[in-house]
């Protein structure tokens, strides 16, 4: 990486950090958003486990364990990871952020 790439690297990492912080901050500031996010995460966990195991009692047991760990105990971290990796990364929005920052750096 050249010298000009170093501040761009820091800028990109900073932008990613800010994007990852947005869901927990919204959850902390808005109780309705907190509840909605937790319900959505629980549904996502159930859909994921059901996709692996189908309709069975084992699905509910594993869903319950994962919901306790991810949605009840560590909801803020799970929401941050979910939005960052499952939404932004899967929809290629992080590429948009990288290219946008690089164009802004070159013009500025």
């Amino acid at each position: 990486m050249n010298e000009r790439g170093t501040p761009l690297f820091i800028l990109i990492i900073g932008a990613f950090f800010i994007l990852a912080l947005i869901p927990p901050v919204v959850m902390y500031l808005f109780p309705a958003g907190n509840l909605l996010m937790r319900v959505f995460l629980a549904l996502m966990v159930y859909m994921t486990v059901k996709g692996y195991l189908g309709n069975s009692p084992l699905t509910l047991i594993i869903t319950a364990a994962l919901v306790y760990l991810l949605v009840i105990k560590h909801a803020y971290l799970t929401s941050s990871l979910f939005v960052f990796f499952y939404v932004l990364l899967a929809f290629q929005f992080l590429s948009v952020v990288i290219w946008g920052l690089s164009v802004t750096m070159r013009r500025g």
Binding site: M1, G5, L8, F85, L94, S102, R106
Partner: peptide
Amino acid sequence: TLLTLGISGILIDFFFVSQMGGEP
């Protein structure tokens, strides 16, 4: 899991852009 979600594209973009960083 990360590769399934598409992090390889992000790494490619990142290293490509960082080589182009700054004025041409």
